[in-house]
Amino acid sequence: MPFDPSIIGTSRNGGTLLVTRDRLRLFAKATGQTDPVFIDLDAATKAGHRDLPVPPTFFFAVSLEAPDPFDYLADLGVDLRAILHGEQAFVYHRVACAGDELSTRATITDTYSKKGGALNFLVTETVVTNQDGAVVATLTETLVQRQIQEVNA
C-alpha cells in the first residue's frame, strides 16, 4: 500500500553516537579495510587527522544508533523484512574522527509508488552534526517497500 503523503516533512531525532576507535576498527574489520589510516593512530595523525577518521559510509551507522532505529517503519505499518535499500547518497562537509559525538535528525522528504503500488518508496534526508553543532554530512536514503510472501514456519 502506498505511504500516506502527509508523512512528507515529518522529522525525528536519531540517536547519538560517540565515535570510538574500537568501533571504527570493528567497521574496518567488517569491511576488509586494511588501510592503516583507518586503523592505526600514528598513520591517521601522519595523514593529518586528529584521530582515526570516520570512513565515508560509517555515517549511516549514526542514524541507526537509536534504541529501536526501525520503529518509525513499524509505525508506518511496514514489515522490516519487506524493505530494500534503493539508493543512498552522502554529501560531506567536514571530516569526523574518533572522539566526536555525532547526532542525527531525519526528515522524510518524499514518498512515491511504482508498479501500481507493488513498490513503495520512502526518501529520508538525515543531517549529521558533531558535538559543536557543525554539520558533518548529509545523507539521503531511499527505501523500497516490496511485497513479500509470508511463509509459515
Binding site: 576488509g32 589510516v37 565515508p56 552522502f90
Partner: peptide, 18 residues
C-alpha cells in the same frame, strides 16, 4: 568506498551516491 579511499584521501571526498 574503499576503492575511493585507496585512491583519494578521505577528506577530499565531496559526495558519494549509489
Amino acid at each position: 568506498a574503499r576503492l575511493l579511499t585507496d585512491n583519494f584521501p578521505v577528506e577530499r571526498i565531496r559526495s558519494y551516491t549509489v
